[in-house]
Simulated assay, not measured.
Amino acid sequence: MVEVPDGIRDQCRQLGPGVVYALKVLCAHLAEDPLMGTLGWEPSEYVVHVDGETFEDCPALDVFYAYGPPALDEGMVQVRRVDVPASAPTRTTEPEHGGGSEGPLEAAVQARQTTDAWQRIASWLREHAPSTYAALKPGASERETGALEKALDVRVPASLRALWRLCAGSIDVYGAGLLPDHGWALMSLDTVVSSYQAHMESLRRQVEQFGEEEGMPLWRPSWVPFCSWSVTDLSYGRFVDGETGETGSWDETGERTVEDKSLTMLLEEMADRLEYPQMFPGAKPGLIDGTLVWGPPLTPEERAVWKPWKG
């Protein structure tokens, strides 16, 4: 059951018939999938962004709602607030740098799947690798991710925004590496900005010197970095393509590789590897003094104390 208070209905009627219709459609989706939104800051709070181009005569909307305990009874959904972001008017053209192919419902699904995968990862780390869990930074606010988008002049995909709302990087300690194979560390938002700007500057110099070249470029404006070899070593890293949702990597030689794998798929695979390590070939999760270390480790010293996790 989805409850819409009279005050919210009156507000939507004042905003126009397109908003009334958009809310009606959204409520129908919430009745089927109450977890489609991204997590808010209050207990049981979620938010869904409705793009301004999806419904006729409807501006962009942020719809905040509560679902289930402790705010409501089990199974209940209540719309709490409808905001019209001042910085998000109805668009008549696609944004210059990516994200245009992601509709509001698709974005909500991507955000929910990312949230689910990360919560599985965080739960495993909290129980089995507390040192690695302690290295994770708190999530970022919408204001902080919005400032990042403005600094980069790029629209961050919903999956990456959802990850940053839960964890906005790692601190520089042993064991901060997280993702399989190389132990990639999550970048802080400041590092994301500086890394992106450095790549764009390299791209600018490349174009000035050699002109536009076919094939894989040095960088694309839609590529948003999110993790690196370590917290301080940015010579290797991974990015999400805001236009396609695909992930990719770069290295110090200038090689760029794009994979047919989304951020959601990457995190879901990591969660599966942690929970069911025997099902996957390649790098295995293991522990050194409460720290997650993918292995077997390369150095004899680490191999001697590394304990593989068998599930």
Rank of each mutant, 00 (worst) to 15 (best):
S235L: 07
L267W: 07
I8K: 03
V258Y: 05
D153F: 08
L274S: 09
D172Y: 02
R91N: 07
V224P: 02
R238H: 10
A147G: 03
R204D: 15
W250D: 04
A71Y: 13
M200S: 06
V207T: 10
M36R: 10
E53N: 15
D57Y: 02
R81V: 01
S228F: 10
E142D: 15
T90P: 02
H199P: 00
S131N: 07
G295F: 15
T257S: 12
S262P: 00
S249M: 14
A22K: 12
A28S: 13
A129S: 12
V25Q: 14
A129Y: 01
W219S: 02
D83I: 09
P70V: 01
G146W: 04
V82N: 12
P277D: 09
R205E: 13
A283L: 02
K284A: 05
D153P: 03
V4F: 11
G175R: 00
V224A: 08
W41H: 04
G103V: 05
E275H: 08
L105N: 08
A198T: 05
L15P: 00
R13M: 07
G290T: 08
V293E: 03
L30A: 10
E142L: 07
S101I: 00
C27H: 09
A162V: 03
L72S: 05
E255S: 05
Q206Y: 11
M200N: 14
L298Y: 14
E42W: 14
G100C: 02
R220P: 02
S131K: 15
K24L: 12
K261L: 13
V47P: 15
P225S: 03
S170R: 13
F55S: 02
V207D: 08
M279V: 00
H128A: 11
D153G: 05
G175T: 02
M265S: 12
A66S: 12
S101K: 14
L267H: 14
R256A: 01
S228N: 07
Q206V: 06
M270T: 12
E213F: 05
V258T: 13
P285N: 04
W306G: 02
G139L: 07
A271K: 03
R155Q: 13
F239W: 11
G286P: 04
S170P: 06
R91A: 11
S141L: 04
I8T: 01
P59H: 14
W41M: 10
S262N: 08
D6Q: 15
W118N: 09
Q110P: 00
A135N: 12
H182S: 10
M76C: 15
L61T: 00
E208K: 05
H49Q: 09
P43T: 05
H128P: 00
F239G: 02
L266D: 15
L266V: 01
L125S: 06
D289T: 02
V63H: 09
D6P: 06
W250C: 00
